[in-house]
Design a protein around this nucleic acid. Structure first.
Ligand code: ZN
Ligand code: ZN
Ligand code: ZN
Ligand code: ZN
Lengths: 151, 151
DNA sequence: TGTTTTATTGATAAGAATTATTATATTATA
DNA sequence: TATAATATAATAATTCTTATCAATAAAACA
């Protein structure tokens, strides 16, 4: 945890930004809830628990800043709110998501899986790939099991 | 064009919806601008040119309906607005997009490309894939060429 | 055909998410 | 320490989307 905070602090300093207490509180929430996919509002409420004086706009600004620095990725699962997802340590690319259309759960896939596809895109479309967003919509394991049982 | 309107009409009828003049006008705009990725507002303004009496809410309602029937797919490129994209005729899955971070252009990839990846996801994660969203962010051919020339 | 339902629409109000503004506070610099 | 540059909290404003509702049009019925 502290190690990752330090790294992020350095990334900010490298662009001459400071890790203010508000920014640190925000980053800590993101680290503590790394598996989740929190909206700005979610982050705000969680930060508020420990730093009640923080303002919503500061959270938005911080998330925006972290996005620009590629410390977090902003995603949208189609429900009208942006969600913020920490990059995995040392990850070159953004990870993938499995969104269940039954229960709404979101699983993560860290494996790249797209090397071949990106090679094709670069070769056949002449497009230089810098990043990607891949989300599968379908039915998760648990919901499939429930469906079998209740048949 | 008329052929595709007919097909869509049948798809609506199959769910006991009617192809009202307003809905038809909306669908025509989507067909005419199939290469583009229009927001609800964009569609509204284009429909208004030919059917000035249409209301914005009707356009939203129509796009929502077409989404439910999988006639259009709703996508979000991270700029805060939803965009609506007609499914290609007979396409099983949604197509992919190449978004240029330099000029903002959006190219489409109709080829599936994800068969292998989906097989892995189904096998290793036990997730039954129903649909996907895949967007690559990077530099398009034109912008690469410009970069070379201006060097 | 005339009457009753039902579905759809347009106008607009309401809601939710995000961004802009501004006065204040904090930090860095000379 | 005085001065300038950054960052913040509170909140107003904006943007996008959805909900409401009366009016209209279409369909079902008698
Ligand atoms: Zn599920
Ligand atoms: Zn994630
Ligand atoms: Zn480009
Ligand atoms: Zn498209």
């Amino acid at each position: 945890m502290e190690h990752r905070i330090d790294r992020i602090k350095k990334q900010l300093h490298a662009q001459s930004y400071k890790l203010t207490p508000q920014r640190e509180a925000t980053v800590r929430v993101l680290l503590e809830r790394e598996e989740d996919h929190l909206s700005a509002e979610d982050v705000y409420l969680l930060v508020k628990e420990k730093s009640p004086e923080i303002g919503l706009a500061t959270v938005y600004r911080t998330l925006e800043l972290l996005s620009e620095l590629k410390i977090v990725d902003k995603i949208n699962f189609g429900d009208g709110v942006s969600r913020y997802d920490l990059r995995k340590e040392g990850a070159e690319h953004f990870h993938h998501h499995l969104v269940c259309i039954e229960c709404g759960s979101v699983e993560e896939i860290i494996d790249d899986l797209l090397e071949d596809v990106e090679r094709i895109v670069e070769k056949d479309w002449g497009f230089r790939v810098k990043d990607h967003r891949l989300t599968f919509h379908g039915v998760c394991k648990q919901c499939q099991d429930v469906a079998v049982k209740t048949k």
